[in-house]
Every structure is written in structure tokens, then in C-alpha cells.
Amino acid sequence: MNMLSEVDVEKKLYPAPDQPKAKMKGDNVSVFYGAKQALFGVSLDVPEKMVTALIGPSGCGKSTFLRCLNRMNDTISICRVTGNITLDNRDIYDPKIDVVQLRARIGMVFQKPNPFPKSIFENVAYGPRIHGLVKDKHHLDEIVEKSLQRAGLFTEVKDRLHESGTGLSGGQQQRLCIARAIAVSPEVILMDEPCSALDPIATAKVEELIDELRENYTIVIVTHSMQQAARVSQRTAMFHLGNIVEVGDTEMMFTSPTEKRTQDYITGRFG
């Protein structure tokens, strides 16, 4: 554990000069809501086992792009996606791909904590159950415990696993949602402004958690807060008006952005 975190620190301090392996690739992705176009040919690589932050002013298309990555946009009937998105070099919009299995590999955490109005245990157990990951009752308990532990929630809730998940505080709820997402052992976790509904202390906890999760998962996070992007991510993509303005290592972006718009945005001149 100690070793690993040292490696982490190293990685953060001295990013590898060569590009790390891309877990997901978006190529020329455009999204239309009816006649309205929301994304204009966006291309972005998501490196493996890193946190990629998507930043930009509201309505810039960052959430839309995020929702393309696990095909959540499918649930909106007027939404149309063109271009190419791959996961491990496989097109996820391929009609042969089962969207349900795809989402099991790419988990998602939403802006507002949305636990099911069921017990904490059931919240976490739901995913493994529907995906048939459970051998028996004991195994399920194990998965739930491990997931809650990874989400740093277990010690707080271990005595009330069978109480309703909606009774937790906002920050705990959001960590429960993260536990729920990792319970199905996804490879990628998408987070859509996961801290926007939380207070600063809860936010700090979730950010800490994100940093720990990076060790095992590829994470894409949409965030409104520049500081958050700087704190948790290794790579940052700046969106504006449905286009990517700039992509790069977070440190580089925040210290020496090449684009003027990025600079304006991170210094708070617009957004």
C-alpha cells in the first residue's frame, strides 16, 4: 500500500514523457439533440488508470461528451451521436455491443447523489446481482463490504447496512453511489460533477477517494471547479461551445496553457 502510494506520488510529480496507453478514444464525436448540435467533432483520448478532467463553462458539451462514453445518451430519444468512440479499441456504438454490458464496464456517478430508496446493502448489491457476479450469499456480502471499503464508507455505515440509503448525508450518499458503481468492477468510472451538491468537507473526502481509485480505475470527471480539476486530475480537457479547446497534462494546462481561452477561463475571466 505504501509502495503504491509512493508510486502514485511519483507519477503525479513526474508524468511520464510518453503518452500512456489510451483506455478509451473518442474520434470526431458529434452529438445532436433533434436539430440542435451540442458537440462538434470532438476527439479525446482517455488514458488508462488516470483521472481525466473535463472542464469548461456551462453548456459547453462536457457532460454531453461524458454521457456518450457509456451511451447514457441512448435514453434520450431525440439524441443522435455520430463519430467513433472506442473502449479498448472496440467501437462502443457497434450495434453488436450490448449497451448493458458496456455500462457494466463503464460505471457512472451522477451530479446529484441518487441512491435507490432502498437499504445501503441493496444499493451496492443491486449491480452485482443483475450482472450475475454473485456466486452465493457470502460472496455478495464480501463484494458489498469490499466496495463500501474502497469507497471509504464502510466504517461509517457498517452498523446500519440495512437502513435506507437516502438517510445518509449528502457526501455519504455520493460515496455510496461510488461504491455502487465500483461494485460491478468497472474498468472506467465516469463522474458528472460528483461534488457539485456537496459541502467542502464532503467534497474533500470524495476527492481523496477519487485519488485513491485512480490506482485501479480509469476515471473521467466533469467538473465546474478549476481547483478540483487541478487537485484530482492528471489530464485535463477544456471544452467550449461544443469543441475541445485544449487537452493536456493538468499541470501544464494550469501553469502554461497554450490557448488564450483556456487561460481566461482558468483565471476566472469567463465561465
Binding site: N70, M72, T75, R103, F110, N114, P115, Y126, I130, R180
Partner: peptide
């Protein structure tokens, strides 16, 4: 948001609705 949560963990549309 409830439906989205279910879809987010990989439930199918029908599972999200019926569960």
C-alpha cells in the same frame, strides 16, 4: 435520477423500470 442510477450501474432499461 433513479432510472439513471440504475442504468449507470449497467441495468437494462427494463431492469431499471421493473426493479
Amino acid at each position: 435520477s433513479i432510472k439513471e442510477a440504475a442504468l449507470g450501474v449497467g441495468a437494462s432499461h427494463q431492469q431499471a423500470i421493473f426493479h
